[in-house]
Write a protein that binds this DNA or RNA. Sequence first.
DNA 1: CCGACAACCTGACGGC
DNA 2: TGCCGTCAGGTTGTCG
Length: 271
Amino acid sequence: MPELPEVETTVRGLRPVLEGARLSAVEARRADLRRAFPADLRQRLTGARVTALGRRAKYGLVETDRGTTMIFHLGMSGRWRVDPDTLGPHDHLVLETDAARRLALNDARRFGFVDLWPTESLADYPPFRALGPEPLGEELTAAYLAGVLAGRLAPIKAMLLDQRIVAGLGNIYVCEALYTARIAPGRAAGQVSKPRLARLVEAIRAVLLEAIEAGGSTLRDYARPDGELGYFSKRFQVYGREGQPCSCGGLIARKVHSGRSTFWCPACQRS
DNA sequence: CCGACAACCTGACGGC
DNA sequence: TGCCGTCAGGTTGTCG
């Protein structure tokens, strides 16, 4: 499920449940996801008050009044279920609050993980150290991209998926942003012109904001016990649409590169 | 630097 | 109905 917009929507959905609440119970129902849960997870979080919810790239942040932040990553299939009636086999971590709310981190494929880190030095959390700028922040500009992509021969699509270049884009929204900017995904990154990079920055923002907005509009549904979130049944322009017509009259193509499907319109996305 | 691939897992879906 | 192959939003590491 989760790229940046889904994580952002998740965080917004968790905020009214968690912010200001005290965690009365913390239970890991298995030892690990992709990695082991921190051994002191329960001890550190039980009794703590949640002071803030946040996001960095595709990571969710749950800050507590104990100087510790719980970091979660949803991997491919992770989601938080709110006030579930019953717990299923994939509900791996359960939080209860003093307001008698219950949250279950559900992750069938277990590619996600949960970690703890001191709030004051979050920037030193190893997975955060090399992250590039937030795509919705002011640091992401055409000038920045031009600098970091200069001379690079790798396809622009691969560069955008590299979290060190921009932090938070995944396969779906990279395809969508390149389509919106009318840039061919296979174009050498260092050869995309400055005006096109400017268009790309705008497209990235527009695509992400639209998805977050779509997620926001289903936030009411987010609280359903099934936790259904998905990609907001949003209709993508190219992703998953191989063989279907583009608005230009061309046909959407699909090609696999290093195991990931790329969708694009060869007719109107030019290099 | 670059591309390809495997690994980590389960579930959904299409074809037969 | 069921079995089997294929594919899926991410990250990390290795190899050539």
